[in-house]
Design a protein around this nucleic acid. Structure first.
Lengths: 246, 246
DNA sequence: CGCACGCGTCGGTGGGGACCGAACAATTCC
DNA sequence: GGAATTGTTCGGTCCCCACCGACGCGTGCG
């Protein structure tokens, strides 16, 4: 019975995520950015000493990477594969989904539902729309499994996203990622990350608070043109309850 | 800060795998078959009452599915996605990899290294060879991400594996799965499972002890012909140390 | 019809680990 | 240089849970 992985090794790894505080850290870090130890401690509601201990464990376990800068300890997910692991686990866990209490929280939630990062790629309505449009335009195709078409490779190159270098990554080029709010897949993988980065570089999108992403005034027509969409389809959520008009 | 998944929910799910005994159960169940509670208890070296408790938790947590038959409680992984989760976790956990002690164990290990199931698809040298050959023959292509080619769809249909019904599954059609012994990818996903099943149906392969798989005398030339390979390339491990001769 | 077998339930025990406060070290700002 | 901020180390406490043995229940065999 020489099993390759001892149950102890698997259990040890899973134990890192089996604590609400550590799990909360990983979920917070799913925004793809580096947090300080203190920020994570406050967000999780534990003492700094407790957070420090947890972070040491997560780093030693290989789930987190740390970077010391002066008196700060910056910490981030070690690897896109860790992000996928946390996503997969979180996607299987039951979701309480309590509705927002305050108006401010409702507004923040609306922004997140419109566009946000999911680790390193775009999610929310915008992310799902991107995924669907790329399929409709023939950039992607799922006849034989999700893949970029030859025509898509040139389309992406025109956009300034060469596909060839992405193939060297240790992760799938394209991958489905179930969207939390839309309950439909958006685009992940090396290409999903590259597109998200490219939009930021072009100034079409900017990061908001937390993991929120906003489409800039210049980015909205530019993205619509690139995707051959009506700019109205990219309308962000309005301040008041009424639906957007033209 | 209304995060979608509470850290508690994620932690609760991870806690199911954070115990060596429960993790060992899941690793054992990775052979894709249903085990009885007693078998798992003996394999893990715990009392039946302890195993019963663990199984109840795993079933309630949605990781395992159970089926009662008389006085037996059969249990299996609930879903291919659970298998993938356990694989991903196990692949990241450190591997002790102690060499086999006895001759019998060495022989069993050689059989496993040659061909075995990885949940529901083929792994081992045979699994990797299948993966590589399908790529070389143009059945699969990874120019835009791993996918089946149009030519591959007809080739698979000729083999008796229609691709169209596989697309309805809630899992990717094709997916890389890192091989434990070969350290290179073999074919997983709905197609990997369908091919494994088809080979068994055709009598080209049969299940051995545990998760081992053997190529039958009839299966060897048949598979070689289907893949346009020299049958020698499919040579199984020999009893003694010497290499196989034609 | 009883006996054997497989499994579930229930206390009791023990160990691991999550948490905090306090003291200490390192860095930056004034 | 002194003070405030950030993070770490160290005891100590408490709770959770993995484990077992014993008993009870249903199934299947002789």
């Amino acid at each position: 019975m020489t099993t390759r992985t001892d149950g102890h090794a698997l259990a040890g790894l899973a134990a890192l995520l089996a604590d609400p505080t550590r799990a909360g850290f990983c979920l917070a870090l799913l925004d793809g950015r580096a947090w300080t130890a203190g920020e994570l401690a406050r967000a999780a509601g534990v003492a700094p000493s407790t957070a420090s201990d947890h972070l040491t464990r997560l780093v030693r376990g290989g789930l987190l990477a740390e970077e010391r800068q002066g008196r700060h300890r910056y910490v981030r997910l070690a690897d896109p594969s860790v992000a996928q692991l946390v996503e997969d686990l979180a996607g299987r866990a039951p979701a309480p989904a309590a509705p927002p209490r305050t108006l401010r929280a409702a507004s923040a939630q609306a922004s997140l539902a419109y566009a946000r990062t999911c680790y390193d790629h775009l999610a929310g309505r915008l992310g799902v729309l991107l995924h669907d449009t790329l399929l409709a335009r023939g950039v992607l195709d799922r006849a034989g499994g999700l893949a970029v078409t030859p025509a898509g490779i040139t389309w992406l190159a025109d956009l300034g996203v060469p596909v060839e270098p992405l193939r060297a990554a240790r992760r799938p080029l394209v991958r489905d990622c179930l969207d939390w709010t839309e309950r439909r897949p958006h685009l992940a993988g090396a290409l999903g990350a590259a597109l998200c980065r490219r939009f930021l570089d072009l100034g079409w999108t900017v990061r908001g608070t937390g993991r929120a992403v906003r489409l800039t005034p210049a980015g909205r027509p530019a993205l619509a043109a690139a995707l051959a969409l009506d700019p109205a389809a990219l309308a962000p959520p309005t301040r008041d309850a009424g639906p957007a008009r033209a």
